[in-house]
């Protein structure tokens, strides 16, 4: 049997879903955790696929972000994020 730890993915895997919601590329967004104040790229956060998508802080496991896709509506809970730093342009290759 697998335990829950082995089913953990990370924020990279949420990139496609987040691209449907946010204009800037979100896996490289830097997130400051409301719980422990650490700062990491969103792609490095731990992802749990439950009743919706939950991203947790890689340092303290506090919930950063929750997204629930309810068909014609999407619910986004950002209360675990103290600050979000977005790059508004991709670097040119």
């Amino acid at each position: 049997m697998r335990n829950i730890e082995e089913l953990v993915l990370d924020g990279n895997a949420a990139g496609g879903m987040l691209a449907q919601i946010f204009l800037p590329e979100m896996t490289r967004a830097r997130v400051t955790c409301m719980h422990c104040a650490s700062e990491h790229p969103l792609g490095a956060a731990r992802l749990f696929d439950a009743a919706g998508v939950v991203l947790r802080c890689t340092e303290c496991s506090g919930v950063l972000l929750r997204v629930v896709d309810a068909g014609d509506r999407t619910f986004i809970d950002l209360t675990g994020i103290r600050r979000l730093e977005l790059r508004m342009q991709e670097p040119t290759a």
Binding site: N12, G15, G16, A19, E25, T27, R28, G43, A44, A93
Partner: peptide
């Protein structure tokens, strides 16, 4: 298929 996705786990030759 939907993509390409991701800007964090990305390497550029530059």
């Amino acid at each position: 298929v939907r993509g390409p996705i991701g800007g964090y786990f990305v390497w550029e030759s530059s």
